[in-house]
């Protein structure tokens, strides 16, 4: 079933993990997909795999902290596909430092990549969505944007910013039929979290706090993002979708 038939979607951080899973699922559901990432080679490989013989997948190098890059991505998208219906702000980096360990530089880098990028992305994409009569923006926050876990201060703050920014954006753009929602995955096995999965203590802890008997997969997140991107969720805006196997139920 083509749940995103003829829609045009930009997905950042699409070279691996959740972004790659979203791009694949979107493409399978009939969307024209613009995949972006700073990791150019990895992105090309993933895009080629998804593309197959379809011409409706575009892959572009993209530093999400750069305003110039964003303008370029949007122009390329319009040139190739004529409009933008969906923006998935998925790109992000991890950080595992406590507040005392974290440096100002380290802190600022995480905020720039994780949350400033969401602001810039919405700033330049929303006017295009207004022109075409509406759209859906999905911002990847985390359960760490909701609860506190020691040792991830910069990451927590950046994800909290995304949660809150999504709500104010939802309010600002509702009258233009642009929906904005945030998604909050728990621990999902991706390249970003690879080091955590290598630590048996962390895996054991995760299993002990997650009621559901397995850890998360990128497809779990992609399914939720697909729902929010599609017209099935056309009365849903300014809200939060938690995908965490029940972790934050406690």
């Amino acid at each position: 079933m083509e749940r995103l038939k003829d829609k045009v979607a930009i997905i950042t951080g699409a070279a691996n993990g959740q972004g790659a899973a979203e791009a694949k699922m979107f493409s399978e559901n009939g969307a024209k997909v613009v995949m972006t990432d700073i990791l150019e080679e990895e992105l090309q490989n993933v895009a080629n795999n998804i593309r197959g013989d379809k011409k409706s997948v575009l892959s572009l190098k993209h530093d999400v902290t750069s305003e110039k890059d964003w303008k370029h991505i949007i122009n390329e998208t319009k040139e190739h596909f004529g409009k933008i219906d969906i923006l998935v702000n998925n790109a992000g980096i991890g950080s595992t430092k406590t507040i005392e360990e974290e440096t100002i530089e380290g802190w600022e880098k995480v905020q720039k990549v994780n949350s400033n990028s969401v602001f810039i992305g919405i700033k330049y994409t929303a006017p295009e969505m207004k022109k075409s009569g509406g759209g859906s923006i999905i911002n990847l926050s985390s359960v760490y944007g909701i609860i506190g876990v020691k040792g991830y201060s910069a990451y927590h703050a950046s994800k909290g910013a995304i949660r809150s920014l999504s709500k104010t954006a939802a309010m600002e753009f509702a009258k233009h039929h642009i929906r904005v929602n945030s998604v909050h995955p728990g621990l999902i096995q991706t390249p970003m979290t690879e080091s955590l999965f290598l630590d048996p203590n962390i895996v054991e802890w995760m299993q002990s706090v997650t009621p559901w008997p397995r850890l998360g997969k990128p497809e779990d997140v992609a399914n939720g993002v697909l729902f929010l991107a599609s017209d099935e969720s056309s009365f849903i805006t300014g809200t939060e979708l938690i995908i965490d196997g029940g972790w934050t139920t406690h």
């Binding site: 728990g186 009621p211 559901w212 397995r214 998360g216 997969k217 779990d220 939720g224 969720s233 009365f235 849903i236 300014g238 809200t239 939060e240 979708l241 938690i242 995908i243 965490d244 196997g245 029940g246 934050t248 139920t249």
Partner: peptide, 10 residues
């Protein structure tokens, strides 16, 4: 992978 969670449609 979703359980114990809340979904607003408003």
């Amino acid at each position: 992978y979703i359980t114990g969670s809340e979904f607003v449609v408003d």
